[in-house]
């Protein structure tokens, strides 16, 4: 690693909250895999279901919370969304929004 890259990497680490450093690095990945059956691997739907990859994090998280409250029309998501905590929704939304 060149000194340039090392400095950049340290700066990136400094930008993360302390809690994120302690957390399981695969938490978001593992939780988002529970969505893949319908929404495609890493949120890349092959059709007929909404693709979630690369959507803004806030959009995914707020949609899940609206499903939980019954405020967003749904056939099944209002029932599935209730199985996830706020922290789990945050981790899923973060992971899926980072997918290209």
């Amino acid at each position: 690693m060149t000194p340039h890259i090392r400095i950049f990497a340290l700066a990136m680490l400094g930008a993360l909250p302390a809690s994120a450093l302690a957390a399981d690095p695969n938490l978001g990945r593992n939780l988002a895999a529970t969505c893949a059956n319908c929404h495609g691997t890493n949120g890349k739907s092959v059709g007929g279901m909404e693709a979630l990859a690369g959507l803004p994090k806030d959009k995914i998280a707020s949609a899940m919370k609206a499903f939980q409250r019954g405020e967003k029309p749904a056939t099944i998501m209002h029932q599935l969304a209730k199985g996830y905590t706020d922290a789990q929704i945050d981790a899923i939304a973060g992971y899926l929004s980072a997918q290209k």
């Binding site: 893949a36 059956n37 319908c38 691997t41 092959v46 007929g48 279901m49 056939t75």
Partner: peptide
Amino acid sequence: LEGKFAHAWARNIWAD
């Protein structure tokens, strides 16, 4: 509507 989702579920899980 869920009939359409059932087919989409199949296509997506087979791809997954």
